[in-house]
């Protein structure tokens, strides 16, 4: 596998999958998937619809338990499900639909399940203050943290979801299709956000089918096809090559040289 050669020159991955498979009834959503992601690295996962991207996100989030294979954290095998466990282990996932609660305001969404308390009651002041600090770090333009998130724009909701993921100071942030429903400007904002996450030292898994967006921020690009890891490319691989790999128009052996070289983290 191509990934092995990349691995040799880089530190131990924070998170690894080895031979992970997941079936839904007769459907093989993931087949024997290997994956590594390191600190200060953006690993993009691309693939066409039905390639297994969202299943992969579900496995990393602890929403699905793999039928076979192993998940390793710093080289040691771990079990991620249920989602609370994954979070406790430092893997935070932002789902495609964001999984925000529309009736709750920004602060309530951010701290849900991990509220700060003062005696038996919630400490709204501390939470509100921390929420502002976090949103400012992400350079977010949210008008008020006391409005229901229902009233926010798509990009603002995305930022809130990412901010929530960052609250537990996770080591790995998984973003599932963060730009799927966004406009051009909001997409650029989210990609900036991804860069900032890398600068902060997080390992980022960025799942998308919009290969063009990923080239700007990805250090490595893993191509999923029909549930299998088709290949791993460097971040500067051309759009045509990625598209070919995603759709299967070109076989791996005929790919142009240069796209396999190792990348410094």
């Amino acid at each position: 596998m191509t990934g092995d050669r990349v691995q040799e020159k880089t530190p131990v991955p924070v998170l690894s999958l080895r031979g992970v498979s997941k079936n839904f009834g007769g459907v093989h959503a993931l087949v024997d998937v290997d994956l590594d992601v390191r600190e200060r690295e953006v690993l993009a996962v691309v693939g066409d619809n039905g390639a297994g991207k969202s299943t992969l996100a579900g496995v990393l989030a602890g929403a699905y338990r793999p039928d076979a294979g192993e998940v390793r954290l710093d080289g040691a095998p771990v079990v991620l499900d249920p989602p609370a466990t994954a979070r406790a282990l430092g893997i935070a996932t932002v789902f495609q639909d964001l999984a925000l609660m529309d009736d709750l305001d920004v602060v309530e969404n951010l701290f849900l399940g991990h509220e700060t308390r003062r005696g038996p009651l919630l400490d709204e002041v501390a939470m509100e203050r921390r929420a502002w600090a976090l949103l400012d770090q992400l350079a977010a333009t949210v008008p008020s943290v006391r409005e229901p998130v229902r009233t926010l724009s798509g990009g603002q909701r995305q930022v809130v979801a990412v901010a929530r993921a960052l609250l537990g100071s996770p080591r790995v942030v998984v973003l599932d299709e963060p730009t799927a429903s966004l406009g051009v400007r909001q997409t650029a904002e989210v990609l900036n956000l991804v860069v900032r996450l890398r600068e902060r030292g997080h390992a980022v898994v960025l799942i998308s089918h919009q290969a063009a967006d990923l080239q700007a921020v990805a250090d490595r690009i893993l191509v999923l096809r029909l549930g299998q890891v088709h290949d791993v490319f460097t971040g500067d691989t051309s759009y045509e090559d990625l598209l070919a790999a995603m759709t299967g128009a070109v076989r791996p052996g005929t790919r142009r040289g240069g796209s396999r070289k190792a990348v410094a983290p």
């Binding site: 989602p83 996932t93 999984a99 609660m101 849900l112 399940g113 929530r164």
Partner: peptide, 11 residues
């Protein structure tokens, strides 16, 4: 508000 989202948030 959203049962699935609440579960994912660890509630």
């Amino acid at each position: 508000s959203d049962r699935r989202a609440a579960r994912l948030a660890g509630v």
